[in-house]
Design a protein around this nucleic acid. Sequence first.
DNA 1: TATAGTGTAATAGCAAAATATAACACTAGG
DNA 2: CCTAGTGTTATATTTTGCTATTACACTATA
Lengths: 123, 123
Amino acid sequence: MNFDDKVPIYYQIENYIYHEIITGTLKPGEKLPSVRQLAVDVTANVNTVQRALSEMIAAEMIESKRGRGNFVTMDTTKIDQLKVKLVTTQLERVYEQLHALNLSDEEIVTSLQHYIQQRGQAK
Amino acid sequence: MNFDDKVPIYYQIENYIYHEIITGTLKPGEKLPSVRQLAVDVTANVNTVQRALSEMIAAEMIESKRGRGNFVTMDTTKIDQLKVKLVTTQLERVYEQLHALNLSDEEIVTSLQHYIQQRGQAK
DNA sequence: TATAGTGTAATAGCAAAATATAACACTAGG
DNA sequence: CCTAGTGTTATATTTTGCTATTACACTATA
């Protein structure tokens, strides 16, 4: 996996799996790869993976069944809420950062539009 | 200072000072507070502050004069470029994150607009 | 020229994150 | 019942960031 050395790996793993759940790569009720397999997949240690999983279990986003595996929650409402939360968190961060750089609300929106436009052309 | 325990303090200090330079709180050529004072200001250790400064010195955003102090670069072009870079980095991150959550280009823009709107009402 | 204020660097110690490794608890299937 | 595959936990070790402390190098100025 491609880790950002500025933030804890367990945290990045957590985010990575959350993304898979939200995008439907991992469906509600579906079994996750085993912790050992996940460790191989993301090139990290079992304990590190377990730490990420533990937080997700505490958040009730995945359910752990000893001897059987870890499973994505069946509660689609929870998944939707997670998505909203992640999106909002992202928006909050950009907004605050750009605002702190003295960009007005309008400038923030237009700069994003320009960025997307440029990105499209870059292909 | 209000540190995010998920990212290194020296990195947050760096960002903090960059913000002050870009917003003009620290003007081109202006002397920064002494490392010892900065350490007090941000409630961190001198060495941690020094680490942040070292990176900025390497980036030639500030100039170090032994015995006199640290000074913001006089090169306003560099400052402008820094602002562009920071803004772009932020935009890149949101875009990629939200895109990874399966939001379309339009949805990304409108969700930002909605966020800003809501934020205005929250006051 | 002494002194106070600067940046810089080194040392030692602590804590958190991550690793390697091993062991334990449970489940399913032959 | 045994075994392979699962989650869980524990220990020791390494690395990194951060701190505390001290010392050194340089500058300005009284």
